[in-house]
């Protein structure tokens, strides 16, 4: 079961500042269990998308170089208060998660 993301979106002048904190182990497949010396299976987000006000603004491919519980931040010009922000990720095990927030 995946855990909720934290999505923050605030209007600052003519753009919105959007920050996304994702809950994900982002296992590289390289790290080993110190007890068994077996690697933890790779488990990482492969892609995520962000829609603001119904428009796709970010489409991203991600890999194992990204840390556990990663943070993504960016600015979107023209976004208004009240616009819906929809973030969706999918990982290499086929799990996915969608969370929403509203620009304030």
């Amino acid at each position: 079961m995946s855990s909720p993301m934290k999505v923050r979106a605030q209007v600052k002048g003519d753009y919105a500042d959007i920050k996304i904190l994702m809950s994900h182990p982002m296992e590289t497949g390289q790290r080993k269990d110190p007890k068994t010396n077996q690697p933890y299976p790779a488990h990482f987000i492969q892609q995520f998308t962000v829609e603001v006000g119904g428009k796709l603004v970010v489409q991203s491919e991600t890999g194992t170089a990204i840390s556990t519980n990663p943070v993504f931040g960016f600015k979107v010009k023209g976004a208004k208060a009240g616009d819906k922000v929809v973030v969706k990720w999918q990982d290499n095990k086929g799990e996915s998660r969608t969370d929403e927030a509203t620009v304030s």
Binding site: V58, T62, I66, P70, V71, F72, G73, F74
Partner: peptide, 9 residues
């Protein structure tokens, strides 16, 4: 932790 704060997308 901050892997990609500056995304050049």
């Amino acid at each position: 932790l901050i892997a990609a704060t500056a995304i050049a997308l």
